[in-house]
């Protein structure tokens, strides 16, 4: 759905932030992980067309970002910003969510329906008239997610969606990602929470200093502990526990580990 070809980018001449990246994205849900400052946010802003590559090209569907405006691309690709303060600009929760759908040409009834559905998914359906500035950070982030989901684009990128979320918040986001996957959409998420990556994504890409140094199924990627350590990423807690208990295999969920211990155990459990 996205083809990235030899893309480089720099904010200031002389320091390249994205270095000659070539990647293809299909429908597999994808996590992008890596060190602070590795260039993850910059990379997705390039996909979104908000920044233009200094060389190379990106093809979304069948249009090249170099030849299209972000506004046109908005029909196909949605991005939830890392900092909610950068995204929110309307005076009520409902207006904020309606902005995108109306602008990409959904008719008012459909837009309203999509907006209300999206707000229900994040649990803000009872706060339609609240000024977004009075929301706590976690709710602001959920509002930003709702504003993008309501646009019903085929590609959805989330930049650190779990910031400030408690267990329930993460659960909601997990369900949202599942439902988007079921609708055959490409979900791409930048995230530092490895436990969340392990549970939710089929594919994982590791960024380091402007390059994609590792790309594969999530299980394969978490098996590469040396490369991960170099990219300053830790395996998920459950993987670590399995490792310290002396297992060779890579565990991604609690259930996997518990079952394995149960069958291995000397004691009656």
């Amino acid at each position: 759905m996205i083809k990235v070809k030899d893309v480089s980018f720099s904010y200031q001449a002389g320091t390249e932030i994205i270095k000659d990246i070539t990647l293809h994205f299909d429908q597999r849900s994808t996590a992008i992980i890596g060190q602070n400052g590795a260039g993850k946010t910059t990379f997705v802003k390039l996909l979104k067309g908000l920044l233009k590559p200094s060389s190379g090209d990106i093809i979304i569907g069948d249009s090249s970002v170099n030849e299209t405006t972000p506004a046109t691309l908005a029909k196909q690709i949605g991005l939830v910003f890392q900092n909610p303060n950068d995204q929110i600009f309307k005076r009520s929760v409902l207006e904020e969510v309606l902005f995108g759908p109306l602008n990409i040409g959904q008719n008012p009834e459909l837009a309203k329906e999509n907006a209300l559905n999206a707000l229900k998914m994040v649990g803000l359906e009872n706060r339609l008239e609240v000024n977004p500035q009075d929301l706590s950070l976690s709710d602001k982030k959920l509002l930003c997610i709702a504003s993008i989901i309501a646009m019903d684009t085929n590609i959805i990128i989330l930049d650190e969606p779990t910031i400030a979320q408690d267990h329930l918040g993460k659960q909601k986001i997990k369900e949202i990602i599942q439902s988007l996957k079921e609708k055959q959409k490409l979900v791409m998420t930048i995230i530092h929470d490895m436990d969340f990556v392990a549970e939710n994504f089929e594919r994982t890409i590791v960024f380091q200093q402007g390059k994609a140094i590792l790309d594969g199924s999530t299980r394969e990627v978490f098996a590469e502990s040396d490369i991960l350590a170099a990219a300053r990423v830790e395996p998920p807690s459950i993987t670590q526990l399995g490792y310290w208990l002396g297992y060779k295999q890579v565990f991604l969920t609690e259930k996997e580990l518990i079952e394995t211990i149960k069958t291995d155990s000397k004691i009656a459990l």
């Binding site: 506004a71 908005a74 950068d86 602008n103």
Partner: peptide, 16 residues
Amino acid sequence: ETISDAQRSRGMETEG
């Protein structure tokens, strides 16, 4: 600039 980014990334045309 920030708000304009928020707007065009949700489909409002600002170039042309």
